[in-house]
Amino acid sequence: MDQFIIEKIKQVKKGDQSAFAEVVSFYQNKIFQHCYRMLGNKHEAEDIAQEAFIRAYINIDSFDEKRKFSTWLYRIATNLTIDRIRKRKPDYYLDAEVKGTEGLDMYSQLASTERLPGEEVESRELQRYIQHEISQLPAKYRSIIMLRYLEEFSLQEISEILDVPLGTVKTRIHRGREALRKRLRHV
């Protein structure tokens, strides 16, 4: 699959805009999900994820083909989400965190028209709960924890994506794991 992306990037660099559609389509779920997890709000996540792809397109000539495209793309997306978080007003930030928990409460789950077997509802609730707990971590821990455990990047790749030294990535992942352990130990 990497080869497929490399080919498409080459075509985009040559000016074939339509090849970029395949790149977007290939990464859209991952990048949207990453933005959603960073921001806790689907509308914002959509805005930022779109912006990330547009920036990637505009700056495609600066992408070094010897490197991994996904690392480069995640870097753009992560920086945009961090910018957005910084620009939020404090009250908006709190509000957004609450919005991120949409669907968490039992009643909205029960009101859902979808009919699901009991066990499945339980596990979906658990998944949301875990997502919620991750979203409560400070952004610098959250980004690393997500990149490591949900996007499965290596620590070295995370260091490249976030442009922080490997040692810092390790310290933060240790702290992030400890913080989440405290939040999830009663699950």
């Binding site: 949207f32 997890r37 658990l126 998944q127 875990i130």
Partner: peptide
Amino acid sequence: SAERVEAP
């Protein structure tokens, strides 16, 4: 096993 979401 955190929630997975898809692009709109």
